[in-house]
Design a protein around this nucleic acid. Structure first.
Length: 482
RNA sequence: UGAGGCGUGGUGCAACUUGGAAGCACACUUGCUUUGGGAGCAAGUGGUUGCAGGUUCAAAUCCUGUCGCCUCAACCA
């Protein structure tokens, strides 16, 4: 599948030559998004938004299946509210956009546009929660948030972005921890089964932790340029926010107690993750589970048998449209070859071609986007086989991504080797770390790599830190990250 | 915020060094022929050269300022 082959699209930069350029080319050529005149703001175009809607739908179902309800909280947060929590406000202060005026009237108090909704939601929970019978509170919201970033990239880091943020309150510490991990597992299952994106999950180091959280857990994917992408986070907030916002309940034992909280989120950044996990030289490759079109039907229209072919593909489309997300492109404006390229660029998992030659044999040509395989299927009742093919593509894309990640597994206790790997092939490096932030910092200065996560399963034997040689280590994943 | 690069029809670029009629390709419009990997021919539409000043008889080109975009670094989901 090299692009040098004649006939394929030449408008997308080669991945190896300039990955950043490739990424932007794909986003724009696949019609996912466009720039707006305000820096860092992005227009999500219909094809990109359809992708987001499919992601939303699949995740929303999982969020509800685990007992959560959706709600919607306001966009504005009064300054005094935002400032209540010191760590939190310090973490977000440089990124908050402020509204200072309503119409012509200056406001008494500035209103921050939410960079995240902890302050807004916690202040509300303080009013809602009175008794242990009110717990747990399990709420999620789909919303936009604004973070005034200096450097922005389509989907990966935009000034305004769309996300989902869950905010829960619990009676006990154990229950909150259980919730934190439960949602981390929901994200993991979702990333791997729906997005076909293998992820490493684990705990964040203190320096990478969410501002105000007790513990931050995350899932980390590996992009095709060898850099890691944080794809989702789940925070155990402890009683930090409860104390600040005074979220108390009267327990069974007549004692007034603070609640234990969690928050967790994923954003439109996932779309960037899907692009960089699966994309290739011809553009986007989408897993069938989220592809806006799972199948595109392209009729080969020649003068003589035009009407017969059209009738047949329309019949085929009608048969399939309730089972699959399918598009029939019977537009006369473009040639079949043009359409092949177009839908490959857009990442459509399966292409069906039907032309005069196929009609004679009562068959159609089916081409897979994931591996380029081309096969014929009977025109009559192909639903079962197409369904199987889509399922196989979904599995295969996960497998390919996993193979990419595992291709050169790096594990080292030697810092020089660490540096060499990070310089040459990147990816994740599994190394021992003593737990000191200063070592983390030194490693970052020298290699640009940060601790992406501390995995749950730790080898029992002890060794010494890759930087300072001291003991009491945990094995962690390092990588350069987005 | 530091370093570098770039702003010219919708897109990608040329013309800038050495000031003198804004050009090419693709896209778009119309017509005909085509259609199994970005079709062909013909005729068209579309640009106050990012913006604001300045120098000059004359500025895309020189000067000053400014805004934006891209890459790398620092910061972040």
């Amino acid at each position: 599948m090299k692009k040098d082959d004649k006939g394929y699209v030449q408008e997308i930069q080669d991945q190896e030559d300039d990955f950043s350029r490739w990424y932007i080319d794909v986003v724009r050529k696949a019609d996912l998004a466009d720039y707006f005149i305000v820096k860092g703001c992005m227009i999500i175009k219909p094809y990109g938004y359809a992708l987001w809607e499919n992601i939303q739908q699949a995740l929303d179902r999982r969020i509800k299946e685990t007992g959560h309800q959706n709600a919607y909280f306001p966009l504005f947060c009064p300054e005094s509210l935002l400032q209540k929590e010191a760590d939190h406000v310090e973490g977000f202060a440089p990124e908050v956009a402020w509204v200072t005026q309503g119409g012509e009237e200056p406001l008494e108090e500035r209103l921050g546009i939410r960079p995240t909704s902890e302050a807004i939601i916690c202040s509300t929970y303080a009013k809602w929660i009175r008794s242990y019978r009110d717990l747990p509170v399990l709420i999620n919201q789909w919303a936009n948030v604004v973070r005034w970033e200096k450097v922005t990239r389509l989907f990966l880091r935009t000034t305004e972005f769309l996300w989902q943020e869950g905010h829960t309150a619990h009676r006990t510490e154990e229950e909150a921890q259980e919730e934190t991990l439960k949602m981390l597992n929901v994200y993991t299952e979702f990333a791997e089964n729906v997005l076909a994106m293998p992820v490493l999950k684990g705990l964040k180091s203190d320096s990478e932790k969410f501002a105000g959280a007790q513990k931050t857990y995350c899932i980390e994917g590996l992009m095709k340029d060898g850099k890691a992408l944080q794809a989702g986070t789940s925070h155990n907030l402890g009683q930090h926010f409860a104390r600040v916002f005074d979220i108390k309940y009267l327990d069974e034992d007549q004692q007034e107690k603070y609640v234990w909280q969690t928050s967790w989120g994923v954003s439109t950044r996932l779309i960037g993750g899907v692009i960089m996990t699966h994309g290739d030289e011809r553009g986007l490759r989408l897993p069938p589970s989220i592809a806006p079109y799972q199948i595109v039907i392209i009729p080969i229209l020649v003068k003589k048998q035009r009407e017969e072919v059209l009738a047949k593909v329309r019949e085929l489309y009608d048969k399939m449209k309730d089972t699959f997300r399918v598009k029939l492109d019977d537009n006369d404006k473009f040639t079949p070859g043009w359409k092949f390229n177009e839908y490959e660029m857009k990442g459509v998992p399966l292409r069906i071609e039907v032309g005069p030659r196929d009609l004679q044999k009562d068959q159609m040509m089916v081409v897979r986007r994931d591996n380029g395989e081309k096969n014929s299927l009977p025109l009559a009742n192909p639903e079962k086989q197409l369904g199987d093919l889509l399922e196989d593509i979904q599995q295969n894309m996960f497998k390919q991504a996993l193979e990419f990640r595992e291709k050169n597994p790096s594990r080292t206790e030697n810092f020089e080797e660490f540096q060499k790997v990070m310089e040459e092939k990147r990816g994740f490096i599994y190394s021992p770390w003593c737990g000191k932030a200063s070592c983390e910092e030194h490693i970052k200065d020298r290699t640009k790599a940060t601790i992406r996560c501390i995995p749950f399963d730790q080898p029992s034997h002890d060794t010494s830190c890759i930087w300072c040689d001291e003991g009491d280590t945990r094995w962690v994943y390092f990588a350069r990250a987005y």
